[in-house]
């Protein structure tokens, strides 16, 4: 196997980007999985995509458009989530479809080549630039730093927001902080990972980690590990079989999730209980 390609700058950038995006997306993933609101990720990712297309259409920096749209989505999702009215079937579905509609509208209004727009949809990890890496590094430091500093507040809020509030913790601020970090993370990884794929990099590693541990600290670590691993293995397969890296990264993260389901001790508990019941019966 010829691995000399890993000596090239573009490949090293891709490895670094998948490391950084893997950590930060997976951390966001733990938030949305534990709050039982995985659709926040879908909504925000599509909002970012729509915002970036607006930027492309009107000729300003797409990432600024993405960030503004993420904040708008957070402003709609936040109060709904806060009142416990956020169910994936309706409110989130509507925001999600609105964002998708806007994205296609902006794409249709754009004149000339649509390749820039499609790149934001699929991501282009192999053409990541130095500024992408710097932006993403800053976001990783902020996200990981805040989790370390406010771990106990975040832990309590993720477990039960009303309980966290009732002991005097600023759980509402933490909730909005989480939405803000989700938007920032998605904006920072949009160009490399792409609006469509980012959601699976948020959800899959965290969902896999959720299957494997009863400790929230370990869940954060496992999730980040799976995120990075998805990126790296995905890149390797993409190179070996000469297929799009976005696709291999998503497929790898899904395979990791399926393996986690198969080896989940949480499922074994169920089986074991089932056995006891059948023995009794």
């Amino acid at each position: 196997m010829d691995l000399s390609v890993f000596g090239y700058q573009f490949m090293q950038n891709a490895i670094l980007i998948s490391f950084l995006a893997g950590i930060t997306c997976a951390t966001i993933g733990v938030f949305v999985v534990l709050m039982h609101m995985p659709f926040i990720g879908v909504c925000m990712a599509h909002a970012a995509f729509a915002g970036a297309l607006l930027g492309l259409w009107l000729g300003f920096e797409p990432l600024i458009g993405a960030f503004i749209f993420c904040l708008l989505a957070a402003a709609i999702i936040g109060p709904l989530a806060d009142r416990g009215e956020l169910n994936p079937d309706t409110s989130v579905g509507i925001i999600f479809s609105l964002m998708l509609g806007l994205a296609f509208l902006f794409m249709g209004l754009m004149s000339g080549s649509k390749s820039g727009a499609l790149e934001l949809l699929w991501g282009s990890i192999l053409t990541s630039t130095r500024s992408d890496i710097i932006f993403l590094s800053v976001v990783v430091i902020i996200v990981v730093g805040l989790v370390l500093i406010f771990y106990k507040e975040i832990q309590a809020t993720l477990f039960h927001r009303e309980m966290a509030l009732s002991v005097g913790l600023p759980a509402t601020i933490i909730l909005y902080g989480i939405l803000f970090l989700t938007g920032t993370t998605i904006t920072a990884s949009l160009r490399s990972i792409g609006g469509l794929l980012i959601f699976s990099l948020i959800l899959n590693p965290a969902a896999a980690a959720y299957q494997l541990t009863y400790s929230m600290k370990r869940m954060f670590l496992l999730s980040a590990g799976f995120g990075v691993l998805s990126g790296w293995i995905g890149l390797l397969f993409s190179y070996l079989f000469n297929v799009p890296s976005g696709a291999t990264i998503v497929i790898t993260s899904s395979v990791i999730f399926m393996l986690a389901i198969v080896f989940s001790p949480k499922r074994k508990v169920k089986k074991w209980q089932g056995k006891l019941l059948s023995e009794k019966g």
Binding site: L34, H36, Q155, F159, Y210, Q211, Y214, S215, K266
Partner: peptide, 11 residues
């Protein structure tokens, strides 16, 4: 949720 990763002591 029975899968919630938090122990009785932590709660």
């Amino acid at each position: 949720d029975p899968r919630m990763p938090i122990s009785v002591r932590e709660v």
